[in-house]
């Protein structure tokens, strides 16, 4: 069993994004970057499946310029066996990313692909589903539990009303939700070991995918700010204000 885990380099989740003065985009200059939190959960799940003897190999892939090798090395330190960087400095949409990943799935033939359900920068929540459609594979999105068997996988999904469990034939695509697992920290010996693990670079242009996005970003703005509120001194004052000033309770 081979597991492919696509990961994304994004703004660190503790950093508040700032909009550029010319409203062209968010300013990422000198901002701390990290592996997308949902991708960390995906790496952790794959490594656990390997540790349980249910998978033999975990391959991580990231699409971007050389800087994303940092996140690939992190994933290797967490237990992935080898890494692939699809080298591109283009600004890609989810569809272009899914098409590049499809080429890699065709080449590597993994039994399972685990991705984060969404990246915390573009907040699209699309790539896993698109990859599933392009490869004509079943999908188990927003997973909180993954039971991998020889020829199928059962995925418990976080849905609006509670939980839904589906059974998927393999190969399959899974996207991770928050409660699937708690990712480990990389130990220093493993960080050292990761430096010697194989990292292959494939130029995106070699994969024959049209990389130009046809969704144009016209502008990026700050959201409207809320006006300042007041601090009340007591529960009684709070209730009085909610009744008579805000008029939101009777």
């Amino acid at each position: 069993m081979k597991i492919l885990v696509p990961i994304k380099r994004v703004i660190d989740y503790n950093v508040k994004a700032r909009v550029k003065a010319d409203n062209s985009d968010v300013d990422l200059a000198n901002v701390k970057m990290a592996m997308n939190p949902f991708c960390e959960i995906a790496v952790e799940e794959a490594v656990r499946l390997k540790e349980q003897g249910k998978a033999e190999e975990v391959i991580v892939v990231s699409i971007g310029d050389k800087s994303c090798q940092e996140q690939l090395r992190t994933a290797l330190a967490l237990g992935a066996d080898r890494a692939i960087q699809i080298d591109s400095d283009a600004k890609l949409g989810s569809l272009q990313v899914a098409k590049l990943l499809k080429e890699l799935v065709d080449k590597e033939q993994p039994n399972l692909v685990i991705l984060g359900k969404q990246s915390i920068d573009s907040d699209n929540n699309q790539t896993g589903q698109m990859l599933a459609a392009l490869t004509n594979l079943p999908q188990g999105t927003f997973a909180s539990k993954v039971d991998l068997e020889a020829d199928k996988v059962q995925v418990t999904r976080e849905v609006d009303g509670g939980l839904q469990t589906v059974s998927l034939s393999l190969p399959a695509i899974v996207t991770t939700d928050l409660r699937l697992n708690e990712p480990r920290y990389a130990s220093l010996p493993n960080i050292m070991k990761a430096k010697r693990k194989p990292l292959e670079v494939i130029p995106a242009a070699d994969l024959g995918v049209e990389l130009t996005s046809k969704v144009k970003v016209l502008k990026v703005e700050e959201p409207s700010q809320r006006g300042g509120g007041v601090i009340v001194e007591s529960v009684a004052e709070l209730v009085e204000k909610l009744k008579n000033e805000a008029k939101v309770i009777a």
């Binding site: 703004i11 994004a17 573009s122 970003v217 502008k219 990026v220 700050e222």
Partner: peptide
């Protein structure tokens, strides 16, 4: 985008 810290205006071609 970015957890609502920015609002993007986008146009689909």
């Amino acid at each position: 985008i970015y957890a609502g810290n920015a609002i993007a205006t986008v146009q689909s071609e």
